[in-house]
Design a protein around this nucleic acid. Sequence first.
DNA 1: ACCTGAACACCGTTCAAGT
DNA 2: ACCTGAACACCGTTCAAGT
Lengths: 209, 209
Amino acid sequence: MSPTPARTSRDAILAAARTILERDGLDAVTMAAVAERVGIRPPSLYRHVRDRAGLLVALVGGAADELRIELVAAAASIEDLPGPEGPARRVVAITDAYRAFARRSPRTAALLFSDLGPATAAIVEASARAAAPVVEAAAALAGPERALSAARVLTAFAHGFTSMEVAGAFRLGGDPDEAYHLGVATLVAGLRTGRPDPAVRASARPGTR
Amino acid sequence: MSPTPARTSRDAILAAARTILERDGLDAVTMAAVAERVGIRPPSLYRHVRDRAGLLVALVGGAADELRIELVAAAASIEDLPGPEGPARRVVAITDAYRAFARRSPRTAALLFSDLGPATAAIVEASARAAAPVVEAAAALAGPERALSAARVLTAFAHGFTSMEVAGAFRLGGDPDEAYHLGVATLVAGLRTGRPDPAVRASARPGTR
DNA sequence: ACCTGAACACCGTTCAAGT
DNA sequence: ACCTGAACACCGTTCAAGT
């Protein structure tokens, strides 16, 4: 007759799901596996999450918030400097933090920009929150006009690189670290100084002002 | 008594799967849906592919080969020029071709560097084949020593950008085309001229010579 | 108020049986 | 030689029933 207290929590469920995701992959994140890990039966999960897709979206959303905090911390760890030096270092710190996150939670990171079906919108929203510090740093680096484009370029590189890394795409030898820092340094230097080489720009396809 | 001729083919199966993938997403690529589309029953599929994972791997592998052909064609469409101008334009042509492919087959492109379980190795191999023209062009642009890193940087950017685009990550307004070409132009200009800014490089974490 | 067993539809896969 | 129906294990999900 007495109302029974909850035997688990939404947070515990999300944590369990994330552990399974990182350890065994997305297919292993079944309702049965998650339920067992938190000590309840599968049907009870539906009291805490709408369905499996909702669970995954919440998982990725939580990870995005966690990432945002780490990116903000990385940006804050760089002292302000006069001239363009500060923003450049800040961007490097942010991209390094992104990569650190992706290496710690590779499968979660791979889901940050993935098509998870109809519920994808919520993930995109969470990712946008996480991208805020990137846009801020990009604005300081490349100027307010190019801030959005610069942030997209930096995010695309960091995300693309780490997701390739996670998929095991770098097996031809060489040093992935070197490639990552080459990319970041090239982008930071180019986005800072302003216009890229006009000859190259001219060969981009027309109609893209 | 007479041996019955095959009612379908592996190619037809892969094409059917790809159509469903692009139209309705990965979850919709069920054995039942593919079988129905080629006019057989689900169990018969197992005569042509090992299992669902094998089907997906073959699908992505075929797409990677198709992509490779388009990248080679894009590279060949740029005439040789003396000096660094030729390689730069070639790299732009290749990255444009990659983006065109990703826009035509967004969900397939998203799978090119994805973790599809134990069979992922085959996908990575196919992607490596597709990356060959990129490495070649990167070598001409950045020199043989930095060819591999430069190719990784360019591929990471192109893949990361298009996968974000596919996921609908660019909703803050602005022009994605502009951002894409800004990224490509920045990378091409920076990778061509050689060393990125030393001050920025110095802030990369140590031990990555 | 929260959890569960039972049940349903669906999916991937196997295999003996059909032609 | 290729295809199929029947069957199995598993999965996501619902819901009436339990405490």
